[in-house]
Amino acid sequence: MKMDLYLLFMVLTSSIAKNFAQTGEDILTKMDINRDYKTISYVGVMSIYVKDNVRVKNLKSEALNGAETKALVEFTNPEDEGTRFLMLGKNLWIYFPAEEDVVKISGHMLKEGMMGSDVSYEDALESDALSEKYTITLSNEEKLNDRQCYVIVLEAKVKDVPYFKRKMWVDTKTFVALKEEMYAKSGKLLKVANVLETREIGGRNFPVKVEMVNTLRKDSKTVFEMKDVVFDKQMDEEKFSMRYLRR
């Protein structure tokens, strides 16, 4: 009897969850729960593949989710040692330690690959409020790597977006986007992001290894891996300042 009740509960809750997640907006809301944190810190490894060559860049990152996103990234590999990025809302600065120089990265330069990778500065700067910028529709459900996924399509409703159209494969159980395709207005596929590994950290399903392929670049891809991920750690807000950038 106890088992029957348990099964009934499971069936009901899964059917409620499934009925609830009927629209694209609902799916996006559930996805946001995984990303609902006040702070995040991690050590990152960015592996840039060019044909058979691989170049590894190490970094450490801290970010604060508030009224505006604040993030500080510092590269620690010998070639880029001490190079820092400061993101305050829509503003981005790079600090080059050798020349003690702080350079603001402006509009069109944001489309460049970050430190030579396939991830643009614009990708890194993007806030999570996709529903404000895109019209979201649930296309269908399909299997991706043996995992059942909702396929949602996002189409831009404002001009100020890096990609006109995006297609996401969202795991029906964990609500993690396992794959994303990013398109230009012409319909040309620009980038493909594949989640290679997710991990449960602090009660959240979080992608910790992502592969980004820029289709405009030949024989090139970037694999980004996050290690030692810690959520909601107490952070000194002063760190996210021009003053700290020069330290």
């Binding site: 305050l88 503003n91 050798a98 020349e99 002063e238 996210f240 300042s241 021009m242 003053r243 020069r246």
Partner: peptide, 19 residues
């Protein structure tokens, strides 16, 4: 590259983006 100078620099911040 740039050359350095022998100086004392005092940076007083007003906010995250000003000083």
């Amino acid at each position: 590259r740039r050359r350095g100078s022998d100086i004392v620099d005092i940076l007083v911040p007003f906010s995250a983006m000003a000083g």
